[in-house]
């Protein structure tokens, strides 16, 4: 029985590897691309007022590239929306503005600083005071202001274990809350985006992509990225093994170990909660080599905000986070 099975497999794989069979076959990146385009078009087809959440990071830049493939020569059926904490890297902000202008697509920016003022919120304190959690307030206000019914985001399931559980169409109540116990069954490629007034859906077209898939796709499609993704010299502070960019947002102390290192960013979030990695990779090929060789996960290496507790992401999502 086993021998038969084994023979069968080797026979199949020889056919499978032949050119003739592969003529009508998509490789993994093409499959992921088609899936993501399909999801974006479902958003366009099912919702009145969708938005694409854009941060200037590689994942949302990939989303924009996929949106071009999904909707050109037409305009995007949604604006790009950025929730700006005020702690972003200037390189990412410049890139954001240039990209929106180049594409001729609408960009809406809302600032966490304004929300803090208007709602009298407490600024977080501490050495790496992060406005990460406050983004949720601005995001929900923005959703409310424009009556967005769907927000497309660049979250991936491989990033974090609470994200690994989330549906592609993730329904949030009017407070933006995710209830992991009340997720809708999501079958085949059929997405149910029906909601009540006030609710909204977060949609994650690149749920099934891994970090490496993103980089390989960026290479294949020749997608431009902000310069901070490539090796550059930067003044950094060493903190519990992580390298944090020195900036006006970080409280300097005399005991700080500050040095200039050759680094790049693996993820782009706030300057206060995103760490750099030491690297000499100045092009995509070298970055991919480093990622294949790395022993640390993307968020583990670069996100200070996930280190708070075992369920940090689950808790943030439950309270309306991206």
């Amino acid at each position: 029985m086993w021998l038969a099975r084994e023979n069968n497999i080797s026979e199949i794989s020889s056919i499978y590897n032949s050119k003739e069979m592969s003529k009508h076959q998509l490789d993994h990146l093409e499959q992921l691309e088609s899936e993501a385009i399909h999801i974006m078009r479902e958003v366009a087809g099912q919702f009145e007022k969708p938005a694409l959440l854009f941060s200037g990071g590689k994942d949302s830049i990939t989303l924009v590239h996929l949106a071009l493939k999904a909707f050109r020569p037409g305009k995007f059926p949604f604006p790009l929306v950025h929730i700006d904490t005020g702690h972003n890297f200037q390189e990412a902000l410049d890139f954001r503005d240039e990209l929106a202008e180049k594409l001729g697509e609408k960009l809406i920016v809302r600032n966490v600083a304004d929300t803090i003022k208007q709602q009298n919120l407490a600024e977080p304190k501490g050495k790496f005071a992060s406005r990460n959690a406050l983004q949720t307030f601005t995001l929900l206000d923005t959703i409310n202001e424009f009556k967005f019914d769907a927000c497309i985001g660049g979250a991936r399931r491989d990033e974090e274990k609470a994200r690994a559980k989330e549906r592609i169409f993730s329904v949030r109540d009017e407070f933006g809350q995710w209830d992991p116990k009340l997720q809708r069954p999501e079958l085949w490629n059929t997405y149910n985006g029906r909601i009540h007034k006030g609710e909204n859906v977060r949609v994650f077209p690149i749920s099934n992509w891994t970090e490496l898939d993103i980089w390989n796709y960026i290479r294949r499609e020749n997608i431009d990225l902000p310069s901070i993704y490539f090796a550059h010299d930067r003044e950094v502070l060493e903190h519990e093994g992580q390298l944090v960019a020195m900036s006006e947002f970080i409280q300097r102390e005399d005991t700080d170990k500050i040095s200039t290192r050759r680094v790049r960013y693996r993820t782009v979030g706030d300057m206060t909660c995103t760490a750099a990695v030491e690297s000499t990779a100045s092009n995509i090929d070298d970055i991919i080599k480093e990622i294949i060789a790395t022993k640390t996960s993307e968020r583990g290496e670069t996100r200070i905000d996930d280190r708070v507790s075992e369920a940090a992401m689950e808790d943030r999502k439950k309270s309306g986070y991206f």
């Binding site: 399931r157 274990k161 609470a162 690994a164 559980k165 992991p180 116990k181 997720q183 749920s207 099934n208 075992e310 369920a311 689950e314």
Partner: peptide, 16 residues
């Protein structure tokens, strides 16, 4: 991946 799952030692929803 969920707190409730770790607490109870069971899988409640699909994880990818």
């Amino acid at each position: 991946g969920l707190r409730a799952e770790r607490e109870q030692g069971i899988t409640i929803d699909v994880a990818y």
